[in-house]
Design a protein around this nucleic acid. Structure first.
Length: 592
DNA sequence: GCCTGGTGTCATCCA
DNA sequence: ACTGGATGACACCAG
C-alpha cells in the first residue's frame, strides 16, 4: 500500500507538472523545464524521502522486519518463533524452586499470603502490581529469570509486594499463635463465615497447635487442602493416600477465570510465530508442573484454539469493524474536508474564479484527479505549494488549456502552422469524449462551465444561447457525467482512505494482542512463583506444628485451612475435604 | 495474452 | 420534481 500511494504521489507530481506545463505552453514556457528525466530525478528524490517516512508507516514491512528480528528458526522444523519466549520457557523451568529451598528464604513469604486481614488477597491491587512489574520485566528481556525470581531484586513482585521484613516470625499470625497457645476456639471469631458455619467446627475438632522450633520438615507431607492446591503432584508425592478433594484457592480462581479460559498459549504460538511444540510445552508446564489446576477443557482446546485464534482474529476483525466505523467516520470527515477544499466541491472562490478566468481556464481532469488524490492524502502538500492552489481551484473538466482556447477563442494566428497542428493533435488526443461531442455539437461554452457552474448560473448560461434539443441533452449529459466522474473519484479516494485506516487498525490490534500475550506469559510465570512459594510455606508451617505430645501432625489426618480473613487453621482432613467439595460445586454452578 | 490498477460511465439510491 | 452526492457494477485502457 505504501508504495502504491508513493507511486501515486509521484505520478501526481508528474501530472501536476503536466498541468502546469499545459498552462504555461500558452505563456510560452518551454517543455524542457518539465523534462521527464528531470522529473524522474525529482521523483527519485521524493521516493528516497518517502522511503524514510514509509519505514515506520508500512505495517507489513515493519511487521515482517520485527518478526524477522525477534524470530528464531527451529533447526529441526524450520518454524520460526519469537526468541524471547523459548528463552522464558526454559528459564521458567530452570527457575522453578526446588523443594530443598532453604526455609529462610521462605519465611518472609508466608506472612504476606497468610496474614491478610479483611481481604488478604486484594486481587485488583495484586493484579496491577503484577502487571506493572511484568511490564518492567518485559523491558528486561535479557534479564535472567533466575535472577528475577530468586535474587529478589527490588522489582521482584514477591519480595516487593508480598514480603514482610526478613525473619518475620511465622507465628505472628494471630490464629496460629493462638492455636499454639491452645486457644483455638477463640479463633472462630476470626474465621470466615464458611469456616464458622461448619457443623463440626467445635473446639474438640480443632487441635491446639504447638509451635516447634524443629526445622525438620515432614517429608511425608500430604496433599492437604492447602497443599493440594499449591503442590504439584510430584511434590505431594509420598502422601498419595491422602489425595482428596481440594479446596479452591484465591489464586486458582484468578487463574481460571482471568487467564486460562479465554486464550490459550497456542494463541501465542500461532499469532507470534511461536513454535507450537514449545508452546504446548509451556502450556504443560503451567498445567502440571506448577500444580495449577488448569481447566481441563483448556488443553484440548489448545488445538482448537488455533481456530480460536482465527475466531479471535475474527473478533479482532469485528473490533476493527467497530473501529472501522470510527475510521470510516474519520475518513468521511477527511473526505468531506477534501471535498471542501478539493476539486469537486464548489467553493464560492472557485466559482468566481471560474467565472472570471473562464477563458483562461486550465486544468486537465485526469491529472487533476490524480492531484486530488495527492492532496487528499496529504492536504498539507497543497498548502505547501502555493502554485498548486491555482490548479486546485480550477475545475475545468477534461479539457486541455488550448482546447479550451480553441473552443472559446481562436488561437493567435502568430503561431506557426506546423507546431500548431502538432499541438492541436496532441491536445485533441487529450480531449475527452464529452469534449469531442461538445465540439461536434458546437456547444458554445466549455465543459468546465457545464459541469461546475451552480444550477442557477448554469440555467442562466443556457438561456443566453439558442440551443437545440440535442445540444441541451448533450449538455445535461456532460454535466451529469462530469459531476459523477468527480464523485466517483472522491468515492474511490474515500474507499482507499478507509482501507488504509483499516489496515492501520489491524496493525494496532495485532500489536495490542501481541502485547497482551506477552503480559499473559509474564503473569503466569509470576503466578507460578507465588504458588510455589506458598506451597513451600505450607510445608514449613505444617512441618513445624506439633501436637500436645510434641509429635508432628499427620498430613493424612490434618490439613491447614486458609480462612478468608487471613488466618490459618489446623483442621481435620475430613472436614477440609467436605469444605473442598462444597467450594468446588460453587464455581461449577456458577459457570452453568 | 493475462493480470491488475486506474478511470470513466451508468444505474440507482438517497437527501 | 429536480438536483446532486454516493456508490456498486461494468467496461476500457495502460503498464
Amino acid at each position: 500500500m505504501g508504495w502504491e500511494s508513493r507511486l501515486t504521489a509521484a505520478s501526481a507530481d508528474i501530472d501536476l507538472i503536466d498541468i502546469l506545463w499545459r498552462q504555461d505552453i500558452d505563456l510560452g514556457a518551454g517543455r524542457e523545464i518539465f523534462d521527464y528525466s528531470h522529473r524522474q530525478k525529482e521523483q527519485d528524490v521524493d521516493k528516497d524521502l518517502q522511503d524514510g517516512a514509509e519505514q515506520d508507516d508500512t505495517w507489513s514491512g515493519e511487521g515482517a522486519e520485527a518478526l524477522a528480528r525477534n524470530l528464531l528458526v527451529d533447526g529441526e522444523t524450520g518454524e520460526s518463533f519469537p526468541a524471547q519466549f523459548p528463552a522464558d520457557i526454559s528459564s521458567i523451568t530452570e527457575a522453578v524452586p526446588s523443594e530443598s529451598e532453604p526455609p529462610g528464604l521462605q519465611n518472609n513469604l508466608l506472612s504476606p499470603l497468610l496474614t491478610g486481614t479483611d481481604s488478604p488477597f486484594d486481587l485488583e491491587q495484586q493484579w496491577q502490581d503484577l502487571m506493572s512489574i511484568m511490564e518492567m520485566q518485559a523491558m528486561e528481556v535479557n534479564t535472567s529469570t533466575n535472577e528475577i525470581l530468586y535474587s529478589a531484586p527490588p522489582g521482584d513482585p514477591l519480595s516487593t509486594n508480598y514480603s514482610l521484613a526478613p525473619n518475620t516470625p511465622i507465628n505472628q499470625n494471630v490464629s496460629l499463635h493462638q492455636a499454639s497457645l491452645g486457644g483455638c476456639s477463640q479463633d472462630f471469631s476470626l474465621f470466615s463465615p464458611e469456616v464458622e458455619s461448619l457443623p463440626v467446627a467445635s473446639s474438640s475438632t480443632l487441635l491446639p497447635l504447638v509451635p516447634s522450633n524443629s526445622t525438620s520438615l515432614n517429608s511425608t507431607f500430604g496433599s492437604t487442602n492447602l497443599a493440594g492446591l499449591f503442590f504439584p503432584p510430584q511434590l505431594n508425592g509420598t502422601a498419595n493416600d491422602t489425595a482428596g478433594p481440594e479446596l479452591p484457592d484465591p489464586l486458582g480462581g484468578l487463574l481460571d477465570e482471568a487467564m486460562l479460559d479465554e486464550i490459550s498459549l497456542m494463541d501465542l504460538a500461532i499469532e507470534e510465530g511461536f513454535n507450537p511444540v514449545q508452546a504446548s510445552q509451556l502450556e504443560e508446564e503451567f498445567d502440571s508442573d506448577s500444580g495449577l489446576s488448569l481447566d481441563s477443557s483448556h488443553s484440548p482446546s489448545s488445538l482448537s484454539s488455533s481456530e480460536g485464534s482465527s475466531s479471535s482474529s475474527s473478533s479482532s476483525s469485528s473490533s476493527s469493524s467497530s473501529s472501522s466505523s470510527s475510521s470510516s467516520s474519520s475518513s468521511s470527515s477527511a473526505s468531506s474536508s477534501f471535498s471542501e477544499e478539493g476539486a469537486v466541491g464548489y467553493s464560492s472562490d472557485s466559482e468566481t474564479l471560474d467565472l472570471e478566468e473562464a477563458e483562461g481556464a486550465v486544468g486537465y481532469q485526469p491529472e487533476y484527479s490524480k492531484f486530488c488524490r495527492m492532496s487528499y492524502q496529504d492536504p498539507s502538500q497543497l498548502s505547501c505549494l502555493p502554485y498548486l492552489e491555482h490548479v486546485g481551484h480550477n475545475h475545468t473538466y477534461n479539457m486541455a488549456p488550448s482546447a479550451l482556447d480553441s473552443a472559446d477563442l481562436p488561437p493567435p494566428s502568430a503561431l506557426k502552422k506546423g507546431s500548431k497542428e502538432k499541438q492541436a493533435d496532441f491536445l485533441d488526443k487529450q480531449m475527452s469524449r464529452d469534449e469531442h461531442r461538445a465540439r461536434a455539437m458546437k456547444i458554445p461554452f466549455t465543459n468546465d462551465k457545464i459541469i461546475n457552474l451552480p444550477v442557477e448560473e448554469f440555467n442562466e448560461l443556457l438561456s443566453k444561447y439558442q440551443l437545440s434539443e440535442a445540444q441541451l441533452s448533450l449538455i445535461r449529459d456532460i454535466r451529469r457525467r462530469g459531476k459523477n466522474k468527480m464523485a466517483a473519484q472522491n468515492c474511490r479516494k474515500r474507499k482507499l482512505d478507509t482501507i488504509l485506516n483499516l489496515e492501520r487498525d489491524v496493525e494496532d490490534l495485532q500489536r495490542d494482542k501481541a502485547r497482551l500475550l506477552r503480559e499473559k506469559v509474564e503473569f503466569l510465570r509470576s503466578l507460578r512463583q507465588m504458588k510455589q512459594k506458598v506451597q513451600s510455606l505450607y510445608q514449613e508451617v505444617f512441618g513445624r506444628l506439633r501436637d500436645e505430645n510434641g509429635r508432628p501432625y499427620s498430613p493424612s489426618q490434618y490439613a491447614l485451612q486458609y480462612a478468608g480473613d487471613g488466618s490459618v487453621l489446623l483442621i481435620p482432613r475430613t472436614l477440609a475435604d467436605q469444605q473442598a467439595r462444597r467450594q468446588e460445586r460453587k464455581p461449577k454452578d456458577r459457570r452453568k
